[in-house]
Structures are given as C-alpha cells and as structure tokens.
C-alpha cells in the first residue's frame, strides 16, 4: 500500500509542482524515487515530527500541497496539537500520511501500534480522516486529497496488501471515490446483514464471509470523516443487522462514527427504525506481548462473530 501511495504521489507530482513531500527520517526504500525526481520538493526534516507538521503548515500557507510521512503515531499523536492548531485551525492543505495503521507493525510493540489516531483526528474541525481498504482506495485517496484544498489524514498499512476491489463491480478505469461515501465491496441480493469496515481489515471481512458462507454484504468506508448521513440512510433501512469492524480502539473510532450517524438520522426523524448494530473494535486495551498483525487482532477480539 505504501508503494501504491508513493507511485501515485510521483505521478501527481509530475503534473503539479505544488506537491511537496516531507518525511520524519522514515520511509527508507519507499520515498527515494520521489526525492530523486523532485529534490527541490522533498525534505527529510529529521526525527522531529512537531517541526515537520509546522513546517508543512508554513509551506501550505505559501501555496504548496505538503504531504508529511512517517510511521503511525509519529505524524499524528506526536504532533496532534500542531495538526489541530497550525494545520486545521488555519485550514491549510497539509496531507498527513501514516504507514503501519492498526497492528501492521505488530511485533514492534505498543509504540508502533496505531490504534487511537482515527478517533483523535476525527474530532478536529476541517480534518478529513481516511483509511483505505486496499492499494486502489489508497491511490484514489491521494488523488482526491490533492484536489481538495483542506487537511487530510490517510492511514496506510504496510506493503503487500491484496487488491480487494478488483474482483467486484468496480474496475480500475472507472473507480472513483466520493468524499464521505462508502463503497460496496461484496453483496448478495438476499442479504439482510452487512459488515461496515474501514482500512485493510476489510480483507478479514471478505475472508470471513467466504469461509463461513455468510449471507452478508460488505461495505468499505474510505472516509471515517466525513460520513455522509444521506448515503447511510438507505443502508440503515435495508439491513437489519450491521457489524462495524475496525483496527482501532472502540472509543471514538469508526464504529462510534457510524453509531452517531444512525442516532442523528433517528433523532431527526429520517430513520424510523434502526438496525441492530454490533461494534467489533479493540476493547480499550494495550498490548504487552509480541505478535504478528493477525495474532494481535485475534488477541484483541477483532474477530467477526459467527452468530
């Protein structure tokens, strides 16, 4: 996925001399091609994420479209106040890219587990929060982020994630992401259940449905914020049972965002009867053991229920 990101950024930067890439001394074997092609628009600021976020704000104020890139918590939690105040308060078009979302760097420990940032970032006004499910979504989000003159966060995974959308109705040439809208990843006509997912854990949902012959539709949400309420209304009306699945703490994350939408639609009289909604997310806990991404997801209860 990080390769898909840098390929797309390179492509865009060829035609847009405002695109700038800053890294916090991370991105070895990923960002070099950008640095070689556009040395004047590449900066390694060193291990200094607060400075990186603020420098990016300064560059954006002068008309550039800076992407800041680092691992998980470093370009997000480490510089949250710079994101809130320097970037979002001033409505500056800085694009924050984190690699290693969720437990992607599982064995590296809690410092590298990126499991709270979606919730934190989505509380900040003017911020768009994205978690692509596969490399195709990641590329589309890069394109959209460049067109959209506002702050973005894009949570990437690592490398080698499967392309999920290719087998379904969405083909590369026509694939377009619309801000705030979910994408149908898998559907069965008779289904009255759906799984809503964000990020690469969507692959788990696909596998689960296939292996267990479950009659459930799957939607990916490239956007954790905003989520268009009117786009969700027909889904809440259609499905009796919905499960939200995310590689994130249960508090304030993707499932919370869906619950908020459902509540607001019901509270305003637009939704007559809400579906039963189960959230699958990390239950307010840290991890103190080594483990692969798959192992840690299992240990932390990120399993879809059989019943």
């Amino acid at each position: 996925m990080r390769s898909a990101f840098i390929q797309q950024l390179l492509e865009e930067a060829k035609n847009n001399n405002r695109i700038f890439l800053l890294v916090g001394d991370l991105g070895y074997s990923v960002v070099e091609s950008f640095a070689e092609h556009f040395p004047d628009r590449f900066l390694n600021v060193g291990v200094a994420e607060q400075n990186m976020a603020s420098i990016a704000a300064g560059l954006a104020k002068e008309g550039f479209i800076p992407f800041i890139y680092s691992i998980g918590n470093f370009p997000t939690l480490r510089c949250m106040e710079q994101i809130r105040y320097d970037i979002c308060y001033h409505e500056l078009a800085v694009k924050i890219i984190a690699v290693g979302g969720g437990y992607a760097y599982g064995s590296l420990g809690a410092s590298h587990h990126t499991t709270e940032e979606l919730g934190m970032l989505r509380t900040i006004p003017n911020m768009t929060v994205c978690a692509p499910a596969d490399p195709i979504e990641a590329k589309e989000l890069v394109k959209l982020a460049i067109q959209d003159n506002s702050p973005y966060y894009i949570r990437l995974s690592k490398n080698g994630e499967p392309i999920l959308h290719s087998n379904f109705e969405i083909q590369n040439s026509e694939f377009r992401i619309k801000k705030g809208y979910p994408l149908l990843l898998h559907s069965l006509n008779s289904s009255n259940s759906a799984i809503f997912t964000t990020g690469v854990i969507a692959a788990d949902a696909l596998k689960f449905v296939a292996e267990n012959s479950r009659n459930a539709a799957i939607y990916t949400f490239p956007f954790v914020k905003p989520i268009d309420r009117q786009a969700l209304l027909p889904l809440f009306e259609k499905y009796e049972n919905i499960i939200t699945l995310e590689e994130h703490q249960a508090s304030g994350g993707f499932g919370s965002a869906i619950l908020e939408c459902m509540n607001d639609l019901e509270e305003t009289g637009q939704l007559r009867m809400h579906p039963k909604l189960k959230r699958v997310a990390i239950p307010d806990s840290f991890t103190h053991i080594a483990g692969s991404q798959a192992f840690l997801k299992k240990m932390n209860g990120l399993n879809l229920p059989l019943e």
Partner: peptide
C-alpha cells in the same frame, strides 16, 4: 496578522516553513 498563536513553540517552526517556501520559490 499572519498566524494565530497562543500555544507556544508553534510559530517558529511554521516560520521555518515560510522561509523555506520563499527560498524554493
């Protein structure tokens, strides 16, 4: 006023971004 400030330690790094932008432009 170029920049809202109030949280300390923010404006000087932003100023570095401005100065760097002037350089490359």
């Amino acid at each position: 006023v170029e920049l809202s400030t109030g949280s300390l330690g923010h404006a000087f790094p932003v100023s570095c971004g401005l100065a760097y932008a002037a350089r490359i432009k």
